[in-house]
Nucleic acid binder design. Structure first.
Lengths: 106, 106
DNA sequence: TATTTGCGAAACCGAAAAGTTGCATATATA
DNA sequence: TATATATGCAACTTTTCGGTTTCGCAAATA
């Protein structure tokens, strides 16, 4: 069981679930209605998402509402940041090259 | 074969390879030296990364240099963006709440 | 109280993935 | 030219993953 956030996000259904519950909490049944799978399959995805703390539960009677733990998503953003730095640097360099060309044309 | 960028990035070894070749191109042998796996395993990872266009090759004699296709990483960033919006909004809301508390204290 | 509903957990299955081994090919080098 | 080196590719094995089915439990409802 690897259960890290990148592995959790690798599955397209789980990404869809994440997007679905990002703004409002939903029950497993309600979530499952949006997909071509059974409630149990969704339940399994939710367990994986819960295990890596991407999702939190709130029990209301016999219903359980799942919602996104948005802060956890920042971990992915944090990993991406190192690459963002690279492409921003390159963009600035390209920008300078273009500026130089423009200057020389005058 | 799913071969999408999220599945590619799910593997920790592949993430390490990506980080390794982000700044300078490297040969499979040189990359493999950084891990506890065989060259063939690394080669397989590189193939997967190449297939989803995260990595590009440059042949030099009998050596092949692999480097990161940084633009492709933007796809992950793009997906994260929708959530960044959410947490930034919440942060601003929290900020307002704090400002209001401060104001009322005066 | 009996039945329905919402849910998680375990057992099972088929497909896919990750790693290993062995081999083929092309480029260096002695 | 013979050998060593760098690499990719295919076959095979083991593990993991996603899904379904079945079950049990608790809460709602008739």
């Amino acid at each position: 069981m690897r259960r890290d956030i990148f592995q959790a996000v690798a599955d397209p259904t789980r990404r869809a679930i994440i997007a679905l519950i990002a703004l409002q909490a939903m029950t497993p049944n309600a979530i499952a209605e949006n997909f071509n799978t059974t409630r149990q399959a969704v339940s399994k995805h939710l367990r994986i998402l819960t295990e890596c703390e991407l999702v939190k539960q709130e029990q209301k009677g016999r219903e359980i509402y799942y919602s996104l733990e948005i802060d956890k998503m920042k971990e992915i953003d944090k990993w991406i940041e190192q690459f963002r730095k690279i492409w921003e640097t390159r963009f600035n360099q390209l920008d300078q090259v273009l500026a130089t060309i423009k200057k020389n044309k005058k």
